[in-house]
Design a protein around this nucleic acid. Structure first.
Length: 583
DNA sequence: TTAGGGTTAG
């Protein structure tokens, strides 16, 4: 069902009736006090409402403006259009566009930026890129592209359509880039998961002595969170503190998220606790942080506290709490949350929620229930949902159901190599060589190759990256020596591997090596000080073999602390363990 | 008076 706020057609000049109320701030005079039919006071009012995020009220005011007989002008539409975009009301946006055309304001730069922004916010999917590109062409034809605001807006349009190459091309061709241009590109990279590019651009900005502002730092902190680059994040925090910049909720939330994702939950919690006014995003960031670090009980506790505080949850925070439940085995609690979100808050669970719940049931071994839940889904399940079931089949060695989930998932995501690797590993554990060959053949026919996975460890401000069997690090000798020692000791605990070498698949020659995780762990042990550093190994979303290795090593090395199911120490592409690189 | 911002799994 598409939502929209019905706007009175322009020709209807009905008697003015004020419905406008606000108790938010005294800056808003009551709309009912307007007896004028000139647009200016209405515009000022609209601008204030839009500036304070009161978009619904802004649209009501716009309707009242029409009813009063005032004629909107080029300064009215930007705020009305922004409101419809922020509320994701495309039909209202289209009605406003009609008004714009009727009043001949279409080619006013202010209106044009708002129109582009409105369309690309309401059609954010890449399939609407053509619409954005035609708007771009229109602006070129009308000679409006010399206006920096218009170009910035077009840049954001490409970003929202996830068309980063086109965005960068446009960015590189903008002659007098302003801070907003830089920010649009930096935020765009951050929003599209291109964290490395964010840091590169930020560095370039520093070299060109362009002064960053809060928006820049938000994008950079988000990138640090994704990379696990706590050191850079800390430097950004210091820079903000030493500057005269005022902290705002966006910055604090970005900081909480950065520390939480980097594993520094204590710091994240301090910032969160000290926030006088926490937004829903603040709660989501801290709950998500505890969740991914395997501290689901605290995540759940915080979620319940948030509800008691009177904060209205949204779909995103439910994803975080469901994920927290699944990682810590709070199956019933998670199922209750799914029910709560539908029943109490009228939120429709989407694919992300279902993939969490399938994961939740799957980890608990309730595979049949998970399958039934997928069948009951209102919308078509996406790859992530079937992928979660496939992952659960791997844990519980259910080949039959794995084949069903795999067939579904490759139909939806035929080029996602991770799923092929997962099924092949399920076949390997079941000694089903026919199955393994079948998957390999399928991959060869489809020309699919797995990207190498890697693990990294941040040490003294530098990030060290390892791929499987890596011998490029200057400390290689010491690393392998330590690994040998660890694994020799490990075998006393019943470990399977010997001498730092591991044969993953006996059928294939020359695919022997050491997993990247092991290299990173050995490197970390060599380069951190006993007594001062505790190594926290996070992310055991790795194969059973690597999982047991980490567990065994943690028994031997007292400063190795293992946390279940966390993501920041190791970084995997396609969500698979890098040991699959021996393919 | 227009353009840029934080949170979501595997």
């Amino acid at each position: 069902m598409t939502k929209h706020l019905h706007l009175i057609p322009l020709h209807k000049n009905t008697k003015f009736l004020s419905l406008f109320h606000t108790n938010k701030s005294t800056i808003f005079t009551k709309a009912s006090s307007f007896t004028t039919t000139t647009a200016t006071p209405w515009n000022t009012h609209l601008r204030n409402l839009s500036k304070h995020g009161q978009y619904n009220e802004a649209l009501i005011l716009y309707r009242q403006m029409l009813q009063s007989g005032a004629t909107p002008n080029a300064f009215t539409f930007p705020f009305a259009l922004k409101s419809s975009a922020s509320l994701a009301l495309p039909i209202t946006g289209k009605q406003l566009h009609c008004h714009v055309i009727k009043l001949g304001c279409e080619f006013e730069p202010f209106v044009q930026t708002a129109l582009i922004s409105m369309y690309c916010r309401c059609c954010t999917a890449s399939r609407y890129l053509w619409l954005g590109m035609s708007l771009h062409c229109l602006n070129v034809k009308c000679g409006l592209v010399n206006d920096l605001a218009i170009v910035n807006c077009l840049l954001t349009m490409y970003v929202r359509c996830a068309s980063m190459e086109l965005a960068r091309k446009l960015f590189d061709h903008i002659p007098g880039k302003g801070l907003i241009t830089w920010n649009a590109m930096i935020s765009g990279y951050a929003q599209n998961g291109l964290a490395g590019e964010v840091l590169e651009l930020y560095h370039e900005m520093e070299l060109l002595q362009v002064n960053p502002d809060a928006v820049t730092f938000v994008g950079v902190l988000s990138a640090c969170a994704n990379l696990g680059a706590q050191k850079i994040g800390f430097e950004v925090e210091e820079k903000i503190r030493s500057s005269c910049m005022r902290w705002n909720v966006f910055l604090k939330n970005a900081l909480i998220n950065m520390y939480a994702r980097c594993g520094n939950l204590a710091k994240a919690r301090i910032i969160f606790d000290e926030m006088p006014e926490k937004s829903l995003v603040s709660w989501t960031a801290i709950i998500g942080g505890y969740g991914i670090h395997g501290l689901g009980n605290i995540a759940v506790e915080l979620f319940d506290k948030m509800i008691k505080t009177g904060i209205q949850p949204d779909g995103t925070v439910f994803v975080s709490v469901l994920n927290a439940c699944s990682h810590v085995g709070l199956t019933e609690k998670g199922l209750n949350y799914l029910d709560l979100m539908k029943r109490e808050y009228g939120l429709k669970p989407c694919s992300e929620h279902y993939s969490c719940v399938v994961d939740l049931l799957g980890r608990a071994g309730r595979l049949e229930e998970a399958r039934k839940l997928i069948e009951l889904m209102e919308d078509e399940p996406d790859g992530a949902v079937w992928g979660a079931l496939l992952g659960a089949c791997k844990i519980h060695k259910n080949v039959e159901l794995a084949e069903l989930a795999f067939n579904k998932v490759v139909e939806l995501e035929p080029t996602n190599v991770g799923y092929y690797v997962l099924l092949s590993n399920i076949y390997t554990e079941a000694n089903n060589s026919e199955g393994i060959l079948r998957v390999r053949l399928m991959m060869r026919e489809r020309k699919l190759k797995k990207d190498p996975g890697y693990s990294y460890f941040e040490c003294k401000g530098k990030t060290y990256l390892f791929v499987a069997g890596d011998r490029s690090h200057p400390q290689t000798k010491e690393i392998y020596k330590l690994l040998n020692r660890l694994e020799d000791t490990e075998s006393e605990y019943g470990g399977a591997s010997k001498n730092g070498q591991e044969v993953i698949n006996h059928e294939l020659p020359n695919i022997i090596g050491v997993h990247s995780e092991r290299l990173a762990i050995a490197f970390a042990l060599l380069n951190t000080e006993i007594g001062t550093d505790i190594l926290v190994i996070k992310n055991l979303r790795i194969c059973n073999d690597c999982h047991s290795f980490v567990k065994r090593v943690s028994k031997i090395v007292d400063r190795l602390f293992v946390v279940r199911d966390v993501t920041r120490f190791h970084h995997f592409r396609n969500g698979t363990c890098s040991c699959n690189d021996y393919w």
